[in-house]
Design a binder for these strands. Structure first.
Length: 215
DNA sequence: TGCCAGGCCGGGT
DNA sequence: ACCCGGCATGGC
């Protein structure tokens, strides 16, 4: 599919989803730091499990960069247990915090002042932060205009023949970045709508294609 | 009761 | 440049 056709398809799809589901009010988290922590905890994990972990962190009053940085890895792992992969995720959170304190003295406002492309490259150097996590942090915590691609995005687009089965992350992201205005609100809402559609109608186990608003 | 969930890394080919 | 096993809890 070529340029203008694709652009129209993406805009129509957005309108269809927005009409079906309306605003999603993402990211489900208030502070920038909570969003970053959630982005790491939700890696290949159901959000309901992440919520339990976040609740533990709040109850322990460690959902702040300084407090979590001071916490031992073992203690952190214990608190985030319900999110699964708790040992490796505790390491990943620590890696991010080490980076944040080494380079930005623990200040997220400083971190997010960096240019989008430079910051993205930096985030990808943090062990445990891959492309989706980096882009989620950029868009939802930092309000940088970048499109987040996840399994739902891939599954939905490939099932609807808009992309091929084996399209990789960058290719899919490019489709959106090259065919939509670079608008934080649009990128935010679009990805959230894909997740909503994915959860309700496009699970791997139980697809509900007959009722899918895309059809 | 097995399979899956808003990935990513490290080692192998 | 891919491909694969490992990481782990909770819900349906």
């Amino acid at each position: 599919m070529k340029g203008s056709g694709l652009s129209n398809t993406l805009k129509k799809t957005y309108k269809k989803l927005f009409k079906a589901f309306s605003r999603q009010y993402w990211w489900p988290g208030r502070t920038q730091f909570e969003i970053i922590v959630g982005a790491i905890l939700t890696q290949n994990t159901a959000w309901t499990n992440v919520e339990k972990a976040i609740k533990n962190l709040k109850k322990a009053k460690v959902l702040y960069p300084r407090k979590m940085h001071d916490l031992s890895e073992r203690e952190l792992a214990k608190l985030i247990r319900p999110a699964g992969y708790f040992n490796i995720k505790a390491k990943r959170l620590k890696h991010f915090l080490n980076y944040l304190f080494d380079k930005y003295s623990g200040r997220l406002d400083k971190l997010f002042k960096k240019r989008t492309d430079k910051l993205r490259r930096e985030l990808l150097l943090v062990n445990g932060v891959g492309m989706e996590t980096a882009d989620s942090i950029l868009l939802y915590a930092g309000s940088h205009p970048i499109f987040v691609v996840d399994t739902y995005t891939k599954r939905i687009l490939s099932r609807h023949m808009i992309i091929s089965e084996d399209a990789n992350y960058d290719e899919i992201q490019d489709i959106f970045m090259k065919n939509l205005p670079h608008d934080v609100k649009i990128f935010n809402e679009y990805h959230a709508l894909f997740v909503k559609l994915g959860k309700d109608f496009c699970r791997n186990r139980k697809p509900l294609c007959s009722k899918c608003p895309m059809m």
